[in-house]
Design a protein around this nucleic acid. Sequence first.
DNA 1: GTTGATGTTCTACGCGATGTAGAAAACATC
DNA 2: GATGTTTTCTACATCGCGTAGAACATCAAC
Lengths: 128, 128
Amino acid sequence: MASLGELERAVMDLLWAGQEAATANTLRDMLAQSTAAHDGAAGHVGKDLAVTTVLTVLSRLEKKGLVERERGTRPHRYRAVSSREDHTAELMHEVLGSAPDREAVLARFIGSVTEGEAETLRKLLGHS
Amino acid sequence: MASLGELERAVMDLLWAGQEAATANTLRDMLAQSTAAHDGAAGHVGKDLAVTTVLTVLSRLEKKGLVERERGTRPHRYRAVSSREDHTAELMHEVLGSAPDREAVLARFIGSVTEGEAETLRKLLGHS
DNA sequence: GTTGATGTTCTACGCGATGTAGAAAACATC
DNA sequence: GATGTTTTCTACATCGCGTAGAACATCAAC
């Protein structure tokens, strides 16, 4: 179960961006702040949401295992369980799946990767 | 927009498996046939569906651009637009996205690939 | 050219996921 | 224990998907 809704994604983007754990209120404010102008994560812009909305979303993200919270402190603090990169890589593996044609898929995949990335991959894969 | 429902997936699996274009009725029968015993694609087993159901699903898949149909022949014939491998590879790129941390993601991804596959990748990436 | 069989489109319902938030309950503080 | 803050419960709208009947279109045969 991987897919995220638009708001869920926006919240995760915020949690992934800041390295500190955040409270629902902080997140609510951040979501309200991000204006259409810039906002790398785009999508949800200037949404002025109720805190309860953010809390609901956070609960759902927690249930999905993407977020964990410190229940000790009074305003609970939420943090992403894994980095965006780890999460994305995991997703990629999920998509790749355990099909019998894994290698064929990889071949196609590699085919449309930029030369720079190909170079990076060569390094990562090492000699041997 | 990537994700497929269970039935949609089952239909795509059938279309990807057979190289010939199939009719809704054929697909209906195939779906009914596939018993729990084997059936590589698993999931939807022995479902005895109405033809209209299959047609609805095919329409939705067409709208998603995964399937195309010959409208000329009377029982319309449906075929997958691209191979399963191509589709999966495309999905992987979609997941990888155009984030600024693409290389970091690739690093994580490569990290958890079997040695056999790593070998394949080395060959594919070639020297250069 | 009317009838019937066969195939396709329209419309629709149920369910689960998601966006959204008020009402109510739990806490902290004075 | 009254008040303000935070969290949980409950709820509703929308949408995607599984599912299919009703209505419409086609075409062969009579």
